[in-house]
């Protein structure tokens, strides 16, 4: 993870009195370090976007070839749960944006509360996801080769050709997205602990800001996944 490795403050080599503790020796100023970290993070984000792009291409191609299948298969997904999850994730985006807002104003406590709220919401997202997954597994809606739908409204999919492709794409996309949520939770937890230890202030809050950017990207991916998989 770019966020973990490149921005933690290094032990300074020179003991100069106006040298901030977080400034690494090869940077001239905090400003330069902050700008570099942020550009690095945006570059990392576009690698993430391109990572997901291949799955979007797969979705687009199979939808183009088998539109009826995708309509039929997406009707078996639980729109209520999907909508709730969307709102949960959007709210978590708000809380993480607020945490940056508060750290910029030096209100460390409020920042930590908001990071904590983000963690709770992310956990909630994963729990809902877990129930969605298990309800599908119960009816044999596995990805690809193990696809064997039975029971409930899944039974009708047995006669729909290429329905297994939809579920492959569904599980791969949401699975990799879920993996990003879990990684995000770990990073947010780490940032919250460091904020608790007093590492951040309005002078230095780069890790909070970068984690926020990452979390918003996870949110954006879901913003697209939700209508693609659940609604259309």
């Amino acid at each position: 993870m770019a966020t973990d490795t490149d921005i933690a403050p290094a032990p300074t080599e020179t003991d100069h009195h106006d040298h901030p503790a977080h400034l690494q020796h090869h940077f001239v100023s905090s400003e330069q370090q902050f700008d570099s970290a942020k550009l690095g993070m945006w570059l990392f984000l576009i690698t993430e976007i391109l990572l997901f792009s291949a799955m979007f291409v797969a979705y687009a191609v199979y939808r183009q070839w088998h539109p009826e299948t995708f309509v039929a298969a997406s009707e078996t997904l639980n729109v209520t749960m999907g909508t709730i999850n969307t709102i949960v994730l959007l709210t978590s985006s708000l809380t993480v944006a607020l945490s940056i807002h508060y750290i910029q104003k030096d209100e460390v406590k409020k920042c930590i509360y908001n990071l904590g709220a983000t963690l709770v919401l992310a956990g909630g997202f994963m729990v809902i996801k877990y129930f969605e997954y298990t309800s599908k597994f119960e009816h044999g809606a596995y990805p690809g080769g193990m696809f064997d739908p039975h029971g409930g409204h899944y039974a009708q999919l047995a006669d729909v050709p290429f329905a297994s492709q939809f579920f492959s794409i569904y599980f791969v996309m949401t699975g990799i997205h879920g993996l990003h949520v879990i990684i995000g939770m770990a990073v947010i937890g780490w940032v919250a602990v460091r904020a608790w230890m007093g590492s951040f202030s309005s002078e230095y809050y780069t890790p909070v800001e970068l984690t926020g950017l990452y979390w918003h990207l996870v949110d954006i991916v879901w913003i697209f996944l939700f209508p693609m998989l659940y609604l259309i």
Binding site: T47, A54, G144, G145, Q165, S168, I176
Partner: peptide, 23 residues
């Protein structure tokens, strides 16, 4: 810009072998 795509392609190829995702 390009390297992430080979990453996900390789992941999909692995999933194709392990889970038979049929893409």
């Amino acid at each position: 810009l390009a390297t992430p795509v080979i990453g996900i392609t390789m992941v999909l190829l692995i999933l194709e072998q392990v889970l038979q995702i049929g893409i």
